[in-house]
């Protein structure tokens, strides 16, 4: 599919998501707009509870009741499937299945969301491949082992046969990352992908995401609390607070010269810039 080169891969316009709870309506995402160019990385940072994860879920239409997208457009300009307005797809449509399974992949904040406790790590990644790609089980297994190795899991063959609870938090997250990348998505959504990892594995995973991004030209929406990760990974950054984007710009501009008071509050709270806690 051909789009004008300047047309972004993803356009989110006036997105609103609300939760209709017995205690009232929670406006989790209020009028959020942003776009991500092909091959670029946008970091979404901000307050805990400001709607970053809900925004990410919306892109895959994974917001669960009592939550619902109440307004807005989510346009994905896919090389493989053309222009799709994700926000208006029918729940049962084949396109939504394609969006979820291959065009857009998500790494969740909590690895167990993506993993079944009763299947081995390897069989789950095999399954993700087999559902969306036309390959033999043996080929899927080869791809899985290769991917486990790529994300830095030593003894991939042994780990393949282990259950999620037998892995450390960090190893589980690497397995999830392997599962998300194995289908070569056009957009990778990573919600706190390395929060559970030590910095050496974080460095390797971030490096891997960068390499893969170059290799298949995918765009990345990176949600993180770590401004170090933002500075090293992203081209652009959007700062969220209470359901809204309060500041947006290039990473260098926002980190070096923040305009909004809330962005400054966040940057001042960085542990490396704060006085020692006494």
């Amino acid at each position: 599919m051909n789009f004008p080169p300047e047309a972004p891969l993803l356009d989110v316009r006036n997105l609103r998501v609300s939760f209709f709870t017995p205690d009232g309506v929670v406006g989790a995402v209020q009028n959020v707009s942003f776009s991500i160019a092909r091959g670029r990385t946008l970091a979404l940072v901000g307050e805990s509870g400001s709607g970053k994860s809900v925004t990410a879920y919306s892109l895959l239409r994974l917001v669960q009741p009592p939550g619902r997208i109440v307004d807005g457009r989510i346009v994905l300009r896919s090389q493989r499937a053309g222009e799709i307005d994700i926000s208006h797809l029918d729940e049962k449509s084949g396109l939504l299945f394609r969006v979820r399974g291959g065009l857009v992949s998500m790494i969740f904040q909590e690895p167990m969301t993506a993993l079944s406790p009763v299947h081995t790590i390897g069989s789950q990644i095999d399954e993700a491949i087999l559902v969306h790609q036309d390959v033999s089980p043996a080929a899927a297994r080869r791809l899985t082992l290769e991917m486990l190795h790529k994300v830095g899991i030593a003894n991939a063959a042994q780990r393949y046969a282990q259950y999620p609870h037998e892995l450390s938090g960090g190893m589980r997250q690497r397995a999830v990352i392997a599962m998300a990348l194995v289908c070569r998505p056009e957009l990778l959504i990573a919600d706190e992908p390395t929060t559970a990892l030590d910095v050496t594995i974080q460095a390797q995973i971030l490096g891997l995401i960068k390499t893969l991004q170059r290799e298949i030209g995918c765009s990345v929406l990176l949600i993180t609390h770590d401004f170090g990760v933002v500075a090293q990974m992203a081209d652009d950054v959007a700062v969220m607070r209470q359901g809204e984007i309060v500041e947006r710009g290039s990473v260098r501009a926002v980190l070096k010269n923040p305009q909004h008071a809330y962005t400054r509050t966040l940057l001042d709270a960085l542990p490396s810039r704060r006085a020692r806690v006494m």
């Binding site: 910095v199 050496t200 460095a203 390797q204 490096g207 960068k210 980190l255």
Partner: peptide
């Protein structure tokens, strides 16, 4: 090696992505 892998919040201070080899 651990300390070298800490990502700096300053975009002009490049982090060490190569810790895998060093480990």
């Amino acid at each position: 090696i651990l300390l070298s892998a800490v990502p700096s919040p300053d975009p002009d201070v490049k982090m060490n992505f190569n810790v895998g080899e060093e480990l």
